[in-house]
């Protein structure tokens, strides 16, 4: 479990990093927290010719309030997001989810840019980026582009990032005042990858469900939005019937994998259970907010 030989380049700017990526001709790999990359190197599953270290690039780790959205630098550690008061106030669902990201030691090193670029289908941040309508800022030698999170995740460990591109900022849409939210997850042990997980935001609009977003993870090749269930719920009064319909819809639409820890059937069962719990919690919060 030692990595194959590679060159090492410590970039001092984003420009230098993307230049190094371009120079590597598709064979370079950016290293930030290294929490997924280092094991893959040690298993010799990856053989990059050069590791481009972005840890020394100044001002790449930040959480900023930008009015409509929260801007997060790619080198921001999970632990920073977990403990950020801005996140806790503006994106409480993300705050809750961060506590489920692996273990403390990993959260101290792992970064949001790394997690999104790695795109594990059972990781919290990719799902949160879908749920919170993230806009991802990407840079390469040919300039910058912005992409919606929903277009970014193409498959397990596969994103829209081109070989020469680097994720340079994540913008998450703030939750509107009065938004109800919930995050539910089941893993084998505390800190493990989710067997299934559900994140929800919704509003209470005169007794009816509105602005409902449901994010799912661990039950497909990518994190996903449960759009059918969202449509079933939108504009409806909250009731057991409508929740059951939404849960049934989720269970029908997901196609979870079977692996060592959980079968497809158990995951399907589980995602329904969690969706039901999350809907109920989110609705309670939204109702509470509407009455305050």
């Amino acid at each position: 479990m030692k990595p194959p030989p590679f060159d090492y380049f410590a970039a001092d700017s984003i420009e230098a990093a993307v230049q190094a990526l371009a120079d590597a001709g598709g064979d370079g790999k950016i290293i930030a927290g290294g929490q997924s990359l280092m094991p893959m190197l040690n298993f010799r599953l990856l053989r990059p010719s050069v590791l481009i270290d972005i840890n020394r690039i100044p001002d790449l780790a930040y959480v900023r309030d930008d009015g409509e959205c929260i801007r997060i630098g790619p080198l921001t550690r999970h632990r920073t997001l977990e403990t950020s008061s801005l996140v806790a106030e503006q994106l409480p669902v993300l705050h809750e989810a961060m506590g489920y990201v692996a273990h403390l030691a990993i959260r101290n090193r792992g970064t949001i840019g790394g997690s999104l670029s790695h795109a594990d289908p059972a990781a919290e941040l990719p799902m949160m980026s879908l749920l919170l309508d993230a806009r991802l800022e990407i840079q390469s030698l040919s300039g910058r582009r912005t992409i919606d999170a929903r277009d970014f995740f193409l498959g397990a460990l596969t994103t829209d990032l081109d070989e020469g591109e680097m994720l340079v900022e994540v913008r998450l849409t703030k939750l509107r005042k009065g938004t109800g939210w919930a995050f539910e997850e089941v893993a084998r042990r505390s800190g493990d990858f989710a067997l299934a997980s559900v994140g929800i935001t919704l509003s209470h609009d005169d007794g009816k469900i509105s602005n409902v977003r449901i994010g799912l993870m661990g039950v497909g090749e990518t994190p996903m939005r449960a759009t059918d269930a969202e449509s079933l719920l939108a504009g409806q009064p909250f009731s057991e019937t409508v929740v059951t319909a939404a849960v049934d819809s989720i269970r029908r639409t997901v196609e979870p994998n079977t692996d060592l820890h959980a079968s497809s059937d158990y995951r399907r069962h589980l995602v329904g259970v969690l969706a039901e719990q999350a809907l109920s919690k989110a609705w309670q919060r939204a109702t509470q907010a509407a009455h305050d």
Binding site: V186, R188, L195, H261, A262, S263, Y266, H269
Partner: peptide, 8 residues
């Protein structure tokens, strides 16, 4: 006896 075994 994992949750998966119990489920089955």
């Amino acid at each position: 006896v994992s949750p998966e075994r119990l489920f089955r």
